[in-house]
Design a protein around this nucleic acid. Structure first.
Lengths: 244, 244
DNA sequence: CGATAACGTGAACGGCGTTCACAGTCAATG
DNA sequence: CATTGACTGTGAACGCCGTTCACGTTATCG
């Protein structure tokens, strides 16, 4: 890391042959894993929108085009990043617990990992959950559902319901803000209060009444309540005949 | 949201609700409304990623920079597009119906509108649901919840639960595909079957058993089941004391 | 009629993803 | 050893993007 004598570009090319072995090793170690790893730390430090082939190349002391030796496109790189993040989700579950608890635990783990990598949830958007680590996650979700007696179709519904909600929740995590500011400090709260009070009360009576209590930055509480309600719904559906 | 409409306390309203569109404004060839309208049809025809200041300008027979006389940035344009789409959601509800039915109807309306504008859900990601038409939607969701007796906090939870799920569902709508192909025709289905059969059976037993029945392009059915389960869960939570 | 504000033009700037001919490196081969 | 050929980083370019700005043009109004 520290021995990169390469950025100056003042050294003529011919001197490169004699580069010290450490430098040589560093140069050779550019691999897909290193690219993805650096992309992950770049995202962790600067956010998803800072992930650029150019800055990523610069971080690896490499020209942008060099990345294309290890990655087909930026889109594929993003897929690999997503899979790298999903790899952090611990998929081991205590099968002695009721399925509802297992699913809750897994959903919270998934959310926590996505929460630790802001913006990565947005990359999950269009991608299939069919990467290697996505598959492990799917298996972990489906096994308790299957064991609980959910038939194919209902297990699939439940799986995607949980997945879509969790991802959707994290994707829109930055949404609870007013003018780019999180609604947590008293000042912003006051502005929010006045905003709702300024609405025409003939059209938005409920918003005026509830608004300032709804737009609160209580994401942890909200996710827990959401997952609980959602799994309660699944449990109830399980005990009833098909609702139609 | 960050549109210019929120600086003062009095000014916002006039810009927000039915901005007075004088005749002289109409006479000019280019207006904000025309820009947004053209952006909407462009998105409808070519998808969200085709929305470019350059192509949008070309469609309006105008140089790209000219758009900036009517729109502060592309981000603001996207906000306006989102609001324009949300305007299509009919927020009138039959208050005689039970609240569960009202919420279901509204959620389905929202999903249908988002479904009709592919990719626009992805723009909702980060934006606040505080635009003019977003507010109408929020009011429409919160009113039945409020009338049903949900307290502030629980009404907020329920509101965001439904919103996050619906948006999340639509955002990931393109996800049910394998190698860029929808899983609907028999051929793709066969490939999917073989894909799951090729997995190592010691690590993915449930996926092998359920996989091909889970990854099916039954989005309508899935959304209906999802919303039903979700509202069942809310209903149950309503009748119980806080589950702690 | 002349001042003035609004508006589109054309060109540019910097940044982006991606491609490609070229050259240096290394392992395997004869 | 010497040669070869696969591999990989280089440097420069291409075309696209969002955005800015000085400059005419035009429409409006006192």
């Amino acid at each position: 890391m520290g021995t990169s004598s390469r950025q100056g570009a003042a050294a003529p090319r011919s001197l490169w042959f004699n580069a010290p072995e450490t430098d040589e090793e560093l140069r050779r170690t550019l691999t897909r894993e290193r690219v993805v790893a650096e992309a992950l730390t770049l995202i962790a430090q600067q956010g998803v929108e800072a992930l650029t082939m150019r800055t990523l190349g610069a971080r690896l002391c490499v020209v942008p085009g060099a990345l294309y030796r290890h990655v087909r496109s930026k889109e594929q790189l993003q897929d690999l990043v997503v899979d790298g993040v999903l790899a952090e989700v611990d998929c081991d579950l205590n099968q002695a617990l009721p399925w509802t608890e297992q699913i809750k635990v897994l959903a919270h783990r998934l959310r926590n990992v996505l929460n630790d990598h802001p913006g990565v949830a947005g990359l999950l958007k269009t991608r299939d959950p069919l990467g290697p680590h996505s598959l492990s996650l799917a298996e972990a979700f489906l096994l308790p559902l299957h064991n609980a007696g959910f038939p194919h179709r209902e297990a699939g519904h439940a799986f995607f319901l949980i997945l879509d909600y969790t991802i959707g929740f994290e994707v829109s995590s930055a949404r609870i803000s007013v003018n780019e500011q999180r609604v947590q400090d008293a000042a912003t709260r006051k502005r929010l209060h006045e905003f709702f009070r300024s609405l025409p009360d003939d059209r938005f009576p409920t918003l005026i009444a509830l608004g300032e209590h709804v737009w609160i930055d209580n994401r942890d509480e909200r996710f827990t309540a959401g997952i609980n309600a959602l799994i309660d719904g699944l449990e109830r559906a399980q005990h009833l005949p098909p609702p139609n």
